[in-house]
Amino acid sequence: MRAMNEVEDFESFLDEGFNEFKFANDLLLGTNDHECEVLDVETSIKKLTFDLDEVEKRMKKLSSNHYEDLITNFQHIESTNSLMKSKITPNLERVNNSFSKVDQEIIQPYEESVKMNQALKKIHTTLDLLRGSNFFFMIMSQIEDLEKSGTNIIKLCRMYRQVNNLLQEANEELLSIQVIREFQPIHNVKYKNLVDTLTTVINNEINHSVKFDASNTNLKNHLIGYYILENSITSIIERTSISKKVQINSTQLSRSLQSPRNFNQLINELNTDCKEYLKKISTILKQCEIFERSSNLLDIFNKEGELSTVFWNSLVKNFEKTLVSTMARGGPVAKNLKIYRQGIIKSIEEVFEGQEKEMFLEAIKIIK
């Protein structure tokens, strides 16, 4: 019958050993010139779309051509079974003829329909695979354009993050495409290099006294880009800004111990300087809006630990270490600290408030 040839041209999809990943790779290789620098995915997708339409057309034709026979013969199946049981010997020839008709008009078309349905599923899987690869190559093309222009660091970081998610979130189907699988280690290196570049720019901008300002758009864009890639902002701020500021202020505090009679003036200046710094870094982070989370980098930082608390904790710990080593060495400096201990305590109580005051007073207990 005509139905026997309905799966013609789709034998590869009906093969029990059919592998959609290998088929997609072979299809891409067959529709591309090895010497061409641009990978053509559209041709493969068009071919699969054509096959998909053809399979659906043939399935509809099968259903239409055998609709009446299908309904009529199913109605006769029960009566045919009864007849076979009661009069199997005298009516064997007639039963065989009836069964042959059922086989030709019902069973065979049904089996062909099942095969066509399996081919349809495989075509769908392959088509989805090629569409996914097409999306991947589109993103890579946009990344290449952004890297050449160097104008939109935030969009570039979003693109890198998107590619990273595609490659790392257990996307085994996409990684079955050889050209994408081979690109993964290259992407990992480029991803790390981009993070390093962002870190360098942030470090330079923050530690440049003129550029460290809320109006520095370049700094804010690189901070947002870093957060998009690393999903964290605390470590970069502590590493490039807080630790260096703490080191500078710790040096000032160490010098104040050499002349405790001037301690009040020195910590007044230090307190003013630190508050100005915290205000400036807070303003910069607050202006770095993360629209995907309807938030900003200051709120995100504070969720992991309040900015001011992180700063003062680090500064007081350094101050306490200096006091410990100074008192352990003894000598004139330690002796002066003991003499001016009450004056130091009074200065701390006058200059600092709240948690900062309590932390400094706790550190001063080392002077006995």
Rank of each mutant, 00 (worst) to 15 (best):
F183C: 00
L48G: 02
L62E: 10
K244I: 02
T251H: 13
M140W: 00
L175D: 02
V351R: 14
D273H: 03
S44F: 03
I364Q: 00
E205Q: 14
K47E: 11
K317N: 15
M359R: 15
K47S: 10
K122P: 04
N249S: 04
E144D: 13
I367W: 10
L130A: 09
E16V: 09
I143T: 06
L323M: 04
Q184D: 02
L120E: 10
H222E: 12
I154M: 08
M84L: 12
E349Q: 13
R158T: 01
E173W: 00
K60A: 08
S314I: 00
S347V: 03
E42M: 04
E16A: 06
I248A: 10
A214G: 09
Q162F: 10
L48S: 02
T49P: 00
N188C: 00
I77Y: 13
N165M: 07
N207Y: 05
N5Y: 14
I367D: 04
G343Y: 08
E144T: 10
N134H: 07
N207I: 04
K357Y: 08
N249G: 01
E356F: 02
L39Y: 04
R329W: 06
N188H: 00
D273C: 03
I237K: 07
T199Q: 12
I290E: 09
L198R: 14
L129H: 07
I88A: 15
E37Q: 11
I366M: 14
N218L: 15
F13G: 02
R261Q: 15
D53W: 06
L285W: 08
F212T: 10
K57T: 08
S347F: 04
V179M: 06
L229A: 07
D103I: 14
V179Q: 13
L323N: 05
N296Y: 01
N97Y: 11
N249K: 05
D299A: 13
S44H: 03
I88M: 07
K115S: 13
R181N: 13
K321P: 03
N221S: 15
L194M: 15
K61D: 07
A3P: 00
F136P: 04
N164F: 05
Q142S: 11
S347E: 06
A119L: 07
S209H: 06
K357C: 15
T322A: 15
M140D: 01
Q355N: 11
G132I: 00
V333D: 11
Q287Y: 06
F99Y: 08
E78W: 01
E11D: 07
I339R: 11
D299P: 05
K321N: 14
L27E: 09
K60E: 15
I267R: 06
Q108V: 15
E358L: 07
Q168G: 01
F136C: 03
S250Q: 10
A119Y: 06
D213V: 02
A363Q: 09
R255P: 01
N313A: 04
F291V: 05
T283D: 01
L297S: 05
S347N: 11
N96P: 07
K101C: 06
Q258Y: 00
L361Y: 11
E350N: 11
L92S: 09
S294F: 04
E269G: 10
S241L: 08
L219T: 03
S325D: 09
I228P: 07
T309Y: 08
N5K: 15
Q355R: 13
F10Y: 14
N91H: 14
T80Q: 08
M159Y: 09
I107Q: 09
